[in-house]
Amino acid sequence: MARPTPLLVVEDLHVSVSDREILRGVDLVIAEGETHVLLGPNGGGKTTLLNTIVGLPGYRVTRGRILFKGVDLAGLDIDERARMGIGVAFQRPPAVRGIKLRQLIEVAADGRFDEAMLADLVGELSLENMIDRDVNMGFSGGEMKRSEMAQLLAQAPDLTLFDEPESGVDLDNIAVVGAAMTKLLKAERAGMTKRAGLIVTHTGHILEYVNADVGHVLYSGRLACRGNPRDLIAEIARHGYDKCVECAICQM
């Protein structure tokens, strides 16, 4: 069987924020159709890796590179990366006064969405009370995540980055968010089976709702180990991150 085509290739990535080195040589390959999970303690660099892939300013690549669909992302703006097929669900997206969620869904869809599809999306994610409100303005934690999912389902990226999708979300909403993530990553419709994802989580709760193929622990700026996500989480739960990175699974 042919190896799946790599979608995202991160090579020896070093990233500094305000002259402080946060990532110190990250290597990561995500192939088409794969969902990876990024575990790690707070401050370990998980969000830094995501934001660097997205292209947010302030994340300075000092060494290494990121390839997406074989193209080096260096020098490409956030919107160019988005149009190439990179999507992101922010942990705490900003409120934007005067811009309705509906508008943002429409721009994210870039003409691919019609009224019926929008109506389906509204129903699926229970957006009835949010769709005509200023985006994220006074949204609860769960509403914010559902709004992010709606925008991403409209955007339909090839690679979706999820930053702590379960944070600040109650149980009812986690299930809805998890279902949306599954839809995004494993789009049932023909021709869309190559989608990939990278999920940042430090609790791992979201994995009860979303299947992931590979787990990594980002520790002190490096990917310290790789393994089955559930095994890694169980190990971390038992021994904590410090021991986890020394454990047998990681040393394999």
């Binding site: 988005a82 999507g87 992101v88 922010f90 997206p93 900003p94 005067g98 811009i99 994210a108 955007q155």
Partner: peptide
Amino acid sequence: YLMSRGVPKDEAVSMITRG
């Protein structure tokens, strides 16, 4: 935030101002 949804910077500024 708007750029991350594929909106070019100029348009994002224009949308936010309008909003």
